[in-house]
Design a protein around this nucleic acid. Structure first.
Lengths: 184, 184
DNA sequence: CATGGTTTGTACTGATCGGTAAAGTCTGTA
DNA sequence: TACAGACTTTACCGATCAGTACAAACCATG
C-alpha cells in the first residue's frame, strides 16, 4: 500500500509553490495532498505539526536559499559590486521575472503574519543588513547604505505586488533594471 | 426584535477594516458578524451576494476615496506640485503612517486576486496614470513620468510590506520622505 | 524467508465554513 | 389603528476544514 520514494526534503519545494499559489489559509490539506501526491498519513508523518510545520519548513528552506545565494555573497564577497549585480540577477531569476510571488511578503500582508513573525522579520532584516554591508563596501556611507538597502528591498517587494496587480511582469523587470542602475 | 439604525454605507468602512485585518478568507462571517454587530440575516440583507459583494463594496469605496482625494487632484489640479505633496500626505495619513495595510495590495498577493482582478488592476493603473499626469505637468517627459509614477506606487506598496514585516512603521515613514523628496 | 520499523491509504472526528429559510419585530405611512 | 416593507434573529444546511487513528503495505535488515 505504500512506496518509500519521497523524502521530506523533496516535498518542501512543492509545498513552497503551493503556499505561493494559494497562500497559507488557501492551501488546504486537500490541495496539498493533490499537488504533492501524498496522503494525509504521509504528510503528517513528515510534518507532525501539520500545516504550521510545513510552512515553517518552507520559510526555513527559503531562508537557507537566500542566505547561501544572496546574503552571504553580499556580506563576504571581495567584489561587492559583482555580488550586488549577482543579487539582482538571482532575484530576477528567483521570482521568474515577476511571475512568481514572494511567499514571505505575502505572509507579511496576510493575517498569518503573527504566527510566522519571527521568520518573516528575519528574512527582510537579513536582506537589508547584507545589502547594506555590500553597499558600504562599494563606498556608501553606513547610514546611506542602510537607507538605500531598505529602499531596494521595499522596491523589490512593491514591484512584485504591482506586477501581480497589473498582471504585467514587465513592471517587475523595469523595477529590477532601475534598481541595478542605482546600486552600481 | 429589530432596529433600523444601521445603513449599508455605515458598514462598509467597518468591513474594510475587517478585510484589512483578516484578509478575505480570514474574514469569516462569524468575525464579520462580531465586528459589525450584525447577524447573518442583516448582512445578507445588505449584501445579498455575500462576502464577495462585501469585498466588492469595500474595493469600490476605496476606489472612490482615492479618486476624489488623490487621482483627480493629480490629474486636474492647476498646481501639480501641490497635488503631489498632498498625495504624499494623504497616503501617509491613509495608511496610518505604515500601521495600516493596503487592502488592494494584500488582495493582489492573495489567492483571491483573480476574483477581484478588475478592481485591483484599476486601482493601481489609475494611480500610476494620475501620478504620471501630475509629474508631466511639473516638467517631466511623458516616458520618464510614467516610469517615475510606476516606481513610486511600487515603492509605497513595498514600504507597506516591509513596515509590516519588520513591525516598524518608521520604515514606511522613511520611504514616504524619500518619495516626496524625489517627486518634488 | 522472517521480522520490525518506516511509510502510506482510508475512514473518521468535531469544528467551522459560507450561505439559506423562515418567523419575528420594527418603523413609516395613511 | 392597520398595513406593508425594511430589518433582524435564530436555527439550520451541506460542504469543507485541520487533524487523528489505525491497519495495510513497504523495505532494509537478519
Amino acid at each position: 500500500m505504500a512506496k518509500t520514494i519521497t523524502e521530506r526534503a523533496d516535498i518542501i519545494p512543492v509545498l513552497a509553490e503551493i503556499f505561493r499559489e494559494y497562500g497559507f489559509e488557501g492551501a488546504s490539506l486537500a490541495v496539498i495532498g493533490d499537488k504533492t501526491g501524498l496522503g494525509r498519513g504521509s504528510l503528517y508523518h513528515f510534518f507532525p505539526g501539520g500545516k504550521e510545520e510545513m510552512a515553517t519548513a518552507v520559510l526555513h528552506h527559503i531562508d537557507t536559499w537566500f542566505e547561501d545565494r544572496i546574503y552571504r555573497p553580499l556580506r563576504e564577497s571581495d567584489d561587492p559590486a559583482a555580488a550586488i549585480g549577482a543579487m539582482c540577477r538571482a532575484v530576477s531569476d528567483y521570482f521568474h521575472s515577476g511571475c512568481r510571488i514572494c511567499v514571505v511578503g505575502a505572509f507579511a500582508l496576510d493575517n498569518v503574519r503573527d504566527r510566522f513573525a519571527g521568520a518573516i522579520l528575519d528574512y527582510f532584516a537579513k536582506w537589508r543588513h547584507a545589502l547594506a554591508i555590500g553597499l558600504q563596501k562599494t563606498g556608501h556611507a553606513p547610514d546611506q547604505a542602510i537607507d538605500l538597502a531598505e529602499e531596494t528591498v521595499a522596491n523589490i517587494q512593491g514591484a512584485l505586488v504591482l506586477a501581480r496587480a497589473l498582471d504585467d511582469p514587465a513592471v517587475f523587470e523595469r523595477a529590477m533594471q532601475r534598481i541595478e542602475k542605482r546600486l552600481l
